[in-house]
Write a protein that binds this DNA or RNA. Structure first.
Length: 875
DNA sequence: TAACTGGAACTAGCA
DNA sequence: GCTGCTAGTTCCAGT
């Protein structure tokens, strides 16, 4: 290892110490980074000085910053109680290494000053820099690409960790190791940020007894760090040695580490794991599932309020503070009321502000203060729309650092194509990064980074940047190309799980966290020199070799319904489907229990390599109306496709009627996006959408409500929300936020952040919970995708594959650890009574049945709220 | 030659 | 403790 690399690793070790907010870290201010030689936006000294400045940061102060002041402002904003300066330097360093040219006025111009975004604690410098140097000291780490550090080094790291724990452990905490902010590395500001917002932006909603936000799962008593350290670090620290093979297994987090630590007697294992620990939400939301109902909420722990603020939130970027809107106080309504907090909390949680019921509030940001990467943005606003016209393939094998590039992300034909509509005045810079595909709010993926692909086949010019530790590609959008571009320069780099998981504050686990979304965003210059940011997402892309090879994927099937008598032949097309595959029909009850299961007889003579024909089994249960069931393709244990919806109708006549009602279903050719088995999009169809064939061709028909609500008119059946609520307690493990509650994943090509303008007036939350059509135009789907983008972590292939439809997630394979009690999941937000009440009412009164606080949660951006909460609701 | 691609060996965790 | 399975990572060979 070169000395340089070594130095960098050392620097990063320091960085992580910084992340850990070592109380005594003044040395960090003066540490010299290799970056010092770089043309930083501001000299290190300045940073250091700023790090000592009072942190009474306001939007005004931030805005007043000069061209470079943004960065400074940012620094000033987040430097407050901790020493984050050094953590910025390397980023700047890296960033400055990357050409800044070609940045359009669209926010890129002038450079996006490296801001300490909410996620900035995940520092993932390029190549070796991605790795936490501290991890290099870990005996668990691979030696293949890093040096082995002495035990002494190891101990040093351990010591750092211990200090960190001490720093954040307050006597008032239920758990010595836990706090909602627990993770000093809550880069995404996930849950801790949410808590913060709940508390300071929605103080009323944060009432422990009233707030739907406040779920017992928000236990302050568990730190994500706990699992990381105890499972992954402490247990291995002492004497473990790398195995002969320097592969990840040595550094792998134990599978169980991702499991809920519910009721752990360990003082470090809070009975209520904090969901917010992870800035980007662990794939395995189990890490913060299973919170104890009895666990005191974070706010119930007096004296810990400041601790509710994720440490990462202290590293605030000015943009986050000041951009929300002219009328918005930088710190939110209550921000200034908490002076003490104001000093600590300078970070407005990114993904929350948009959820405030302020329809029409445009996603404007200062030119120097682009939105954080985990900030929800619409795909459309006003006349502008950023659209992913050609989706990437659902599978792209990412390459490791130890491998060569595996090429650019591809589409079915060519490469993904992104187009910006409504603007063609000048060149803009389209940003691209790899985001998560789980059921929580979108955020940069911890284990995957975009990778610039070079080669003769690459025609698109792009540049790499590092924003908040996330690599971002910038691709020009040229007016001469109709503001459209083919993304043929973007590959996906896989970071080793061990390297990321053991980072401080990193609570996501990489295992089975192999799905990503490609995120595109662009800033459109406005007359007031602000930038209007739009963002769109790709469908989930499976990045692991194994999954891509083994998981069957249903691309299309026909027909989509038949008589309850069965007997019809069902043709299923897709990948990894063979005559050896099995097709299982099933019906799940609201509680997730299996109501009916039946193997479909395969017709081998009609099956082929990529398709299978089965005979639809008879539905031998009495039903008053059409029944929505699901089927999936199985290649064996844990190798099951996403469940597909299938409808049994009572008779041919009934079927005809159904067809008449849902004519598009007959034309279903591709019900699923060419994605891997994600969640069925049904739950995404929360709009009463016009039945249109313009729906994305891969759109999957939502689960019919008839199964659950046979007595309810299809036109008014609140199918999705209800079902969603049934299935995914996970949804409630997510941030108590609308946008974070998506119970189901969408594998739809989505504009996740589509903004309905203005959504609120046109789509009252409750109306969103209703739908008559299972088919929702993409736009409308997307409007709720941001809220619904739920991806149940593929912690279990089987489970994930079957979690397509509501009620299945937890039922195909019962995994108690993933089914925390409702109470622990905050399911009281909407009780069963609420649901029943809603069901029993006329649709016209449905809206009124949504509690005001749900309305309050209305996500104007996504055109959802109460509905979504409803989605995640009761059981 | 470099980039890309497909496959598989190897290892560890878990049931 | 053994076995089988699963998943992550690395390596190899071919294009």
């Amino acid at each position: 290892m070169s000395s340089l690399k070594y130095a960098e690793e050392l620097d990063f070790r320091l960085i992580f110490e910084g992340d850990g907010r070592q109380a005594a870290a003044p040395d960090l201010h003066v540490k010299t980074l290799p970056t010092s030689s770089q043309p930083l936006a501001e000299p290190p000294v300045s940073q250091e000085l700023q790090s000592h400045l009072p942190c009474h940061f306001t939007a005004d102060t931030y805005q007043s910053q000069g061209p470079q002041g943004g960065a400074q402002g940012n620094l000033r904003a987040f430097d407050c109680p901790s020493i984050e300066i050094t953590s910025i330097a390397p980023i700047n360093h890296v960033e400055t290494e990357i050409s800044q040219e070609g940045l359009a006025a669209g926010g890129a111009e002038g450079g996006f000053l490296e801001t300490s975004w909410s996620r900035d604690q995940l520092y993932l410098p390029l190549d070796h820099c991605y790795r936490d140097p501290a991890l290099s000291q870990s005996p668990c780490s691979s030696l293949s690409s890093r040096s082995w550090m002495s035990d002494h080094s190891c101990e040093s790291f351990s010591h750092v960790y211990d200090e960190e724990v001490e720093l954040y452990d307050l006597p008032t905490l239920g758990s010595p190791a836990g706090s909602p902010l627990g993770s000093p590395g809550c880069g995404g500001g996930a849950f801790g940020v949410e808590l913060w917002q709940q508390k300071y932006q929605h103080p009323s909603a944060f009432n422990p007894t009233l707030s739907p936000f406040q779920s017992p799962l928000q236990s302050p008593c568990h730190s994500p760090r706990t699992s990381v350290t105890e499972d992954s670090w402490l247990s291995r620290r002492p004497n473990s040695r790398p195995s002969s093979r320097p592969t990840s297994p040595c550094g792998k987090r134990r599978h169980t580490s991702a499991e809920p630590l519910t009721c752990s007697p360990s003082p470090h294992h809070s009975p209520s794991p904090t969901p917010g620990a992870s800035p980007r939400g662990s794939v395995t939301d189990e890490t913060w599932l299973g919170s104890s109902p009895g666990a005191p909420g974070p706010l119930q722990v007096s004296g810990c309020q400041d601790l509710d603020v994720p440490s990462k939130t202290r590293r605030t970027s000015g943009s986050q503070l000041g951009h929300v809107g002219p009328e918005d106080p930088p710190l939110g309504e209550e921000g200034h009321e908490q002076e003490g907090l104001a000093e600590l909390v300078l970070h407005v949680p990114s993904h929350f502000s948009w959820n405030k019921p302020k329809p029409g509030n445009p996603p404007l940001f200062g030119a120097l203060t682009p939105p954080p990467l985990d900030w929800p943005l619409p795909s459309q606003y006003d006349r502008y729309e950023l659209k992913l016209e050609v989706q990437p393939k659902s599978y792209h094998r990412a390459h490791y650092e130890t491998e060569g590039s595996r090429g650019a992300i591809k589409a079915a034909e060519g490469h993904p194509v992104v187009k910006l509509s409504g603007y063609s005045e000048q060149q803009l810079s389209l940003q691209l990064f790899i985001g998560t595909a789980d059921d929580r709010y979108l955020r940069p993926h911890a284990f995957y980074q975009v990778h610039r692909v070079t080669g003769k086949t690459v025609t698109t010019t792009c540049q790499e940047r590092l924003l908040g530790g996330t690599k971002v590609l910038e691709v020009p959008l040229l007016p001469e190309n109709s503001m459209s571009t083919s993304i043929d320069c973007a590959g996906i780099l896989k970071l080793r799980n061990a390297d990321i998981e053991l980072k401080k504050g990193e609570t996501d686990i990489g295992r089975k966290n192999t799905r990503v979304r490609v995120v595109f965003r662009v800033g459109i210059p406005q007359w007031d020199r602000q930038l209007l940011w739009l963002q769109t997402l790709s469908i989930p892309v499976e990045c692991s070799q194994r999954s891509g090879q083994e998981l069957p994927q249903v691309d299309s099937f026909s027909p989509t319904s038949c008589s309850v008598n069965g007997g019809e032949e069902l043709l299923i097309r897709g990948s990894n489907i063979s005559t050896q595959s099995r097709v299982m029909f099933m019906e799940r009850g609201p509680d997730g229990r299996s109501l009916w299961e039946m193997d479909a007889r395969v017709v081998p003579e009609k099956s082929s390599e990529s398709s299978i024909v089965v005979e639809v089994p008879r539905y031998n249960k009495k039903t008053p109306g059409p029944v929505q069931v699901q089927f999936y393709v199985s290649n064996g244990k844990r190798r099951k496709s996403l469940a597909q919806n299938f409808t049994f109708h009572l008779s041919p006549a009934a079927g005809a009627l159904l067809v008449k009602q849902e004519p598009w279903e007959r034309e279903h050719v591709s019900h699923h996006p060419p994605a891997f088995t994600f969640y069925d999009s049904s739950d995404l169809s929360v709009h009463r959408a016009p039945r249109s064939h313009q729906t994305h061709p891969l759109h999957h028909p939502p689960v019919s409500s008839t199964t659950l609500f046979p007595h309810t008119s299809p036109a008014i059946t609140p199918q999705i929300p209800l079902q969603s609520s049934i299935i995914t307690p996970r949804a409630f493990t997510g941030p108590p936020q609308v946008s974070a509650l998506p119970p189901q994943t969408s594998s739809l090509p989505s504009q996740v952040s589509t903004m309905q303008t203005p959504p609120f007036p046109t789509h009252p939350p409750t109306s969103l919970a209703l739908q008559s059509s299972p088919v929702v135009p993409q736009r409308e789907q997307s409007s709720c995708l941001s809220s619904c983008r739920s991806f149940v972590p593929p912690t279990d292939g089987q489970k994930s594959s079957l979690s397509t439809s509501p009620g299945q997630v937890l039922n195909i394979k019962q995994e108690p650890e993933e089914q925390p009690s409702l109470g622990s999941l905050g399911l009281q937000e909407i009780t069963l009574d609420d649901v029943n009440e809603i069901i029993d009412r006329d649709i016209s009164s449905l809206s009124s049945s949504v509690r005001p606080d749900q309305f309050d949660q209305y996500d104007w951006q996504h055109g959802s709220s109460g509905a979504m909460r409803f989605c995640g609701g009761p059981q």
